[in-house]
Amino acid sequence: MSKRFWITETPISIPEVVDIVSRREAGAINTFIGTVREFTKGKRTLYLEYQAYVPMAEKKLAQIGEEIKEKWPDAETAISHRIGHLDIKDIAVVIAVSTPHRADSYDASRYAIERIKEIVPIWKKEHWEDGEEWIGDQKETKAYPKGYPEESDQL
């Protein structure tokens, strides 16, 4: 079977991700599509550049799939994240979760995107009209599992 969790440099096909989790037992397939936003707090983005530590990122996406399986045993998950140059409106990430009943598919999908922002080594560089910057810590919390490195662990 092909990969369920992968990083790609080419445009993501939504049906391809959905097909992976489509099955007779499912009563719902929840699809999350993350796209490139033009304006953030009034500032105009021209384009984004995503970078990943690809082998680790794919492992961490698969880990999110396992975590979902523990929380929602009947859920099946597939996730694809694009890297490289992305223009406004381009699709950066597609998450598909199928479950027997709809409520779990919403919850698991939300869980997946939040975890991506915590544990998956992917970085976004914003290119604006007047500059560029690698963005970190979008959740405005510590971006790491268990919160480490903690103060006491640091030098």
Binding site: V93, I116, V120, P121, Y148, D153
Partner: peptide, 22 residues
């Protein structure tokens, strides 16, 4: 890896700045 983890010969180490995928 936590800070007390020992690095062995042949290990591939990576520094992971705060992530911003999604």
């Amino acid at each position: 890896a936590a800070n007390d983890r020992l690095i062995e010969q042949g290990d591939i180490v990576a520094f992971i700045p705060p992530v911003s995928g999604g």
